[in-house]
Design a protein around this nucleic acid. Structure first.
Lengths: 113, 113
DNA sequence: ATCGGCTATCGTCGTTTACCGATATGTTTT
DNA sequence: AAAACATATCGGTAAACGACGATAGCCGAT
């Protein structure tokens, strides 16, 4: 992977992580994961914020590709985008693997100092 | 788990996700994972930002508990905090599991509509 | 005691976020 | 056509973020 590709990848993953970076949005995601059918204003009630604020959080999640909305007038049915968080999950795993393959942080030359 | 505990948990996880929500910080994490010894200004060079900016990113990562810094004068040796990202990883997995256990988003009553 | 290298903090600036109430949009029902 | 409903967007405000240069703090070396 070239440097530029890596940068783009980083930007996308950072955007995904950023979308998860708010308690209300995590709450929304949990709610969507567990609620099978179309829910509407239920989300508003569940998170305890104004409707416009919740709508904004939903937009952020949608822009990040974490959720999808399908129109079902007069509602919009939101649901998790399957696999959208996979890259982030993979990164976490990757960091752990790389780390454990490398020596500990402490420089060997200093480890005895 | 009580509602309040869940909220606290959400706040912590959101804070972790937020810390990952910037390309420069992902870059730093990858660098730290792969670099065995103590690196210092190398990080500054690698991310291509001002030293003060990088220091700020490091502080954010440290505050979120994602990395640790151990003093090795006149440097500070940063390294990944093992397991710090595990809760986030677990959440992602949890969302996927819950989702796949539930019916699809579409309300059955409307699926044929 | 001073110098030099490394990291942290401060002050600043412009941008973005979070939140809300109010309003607009779009769709079904009456 | 109008009413009812759900969601999106707008306008505004306060706070947080990202970036930088300048400067302060720390410690080893001279």
């Amino acid at each position: 992977m070239t440097e530029v590709q890596q940068d783009l990848e980083d930007m996308r993953m950072a955007a995904t992580a950023k979308a998860l970076g708010h308690p209300a949005r995590l709450r929304i995601l949990r709610l969507l994961a567990r609620t099978p059918g179309c829910i509407g204003g239920d989300i508003v009630e569940a998170v305890g914020l104004a409707q416009s604020t919740v709508s904004e959080h939903l937009r952020i999640l949608k822009d990040a590709g974490v959720i999808e909305g399908q129109i079902d007038p007069p509602r919009v049915c939101y649901s998790l985008s399957p696999g959208a968080l996979q890259p982030l999950s993979a990164l976490i795993e990757e960091l752990d693997i790389i780390r454990s393959e490398s020596a500990c942080c402490v420089n060997p030359a200093r480890a005895q100092g």
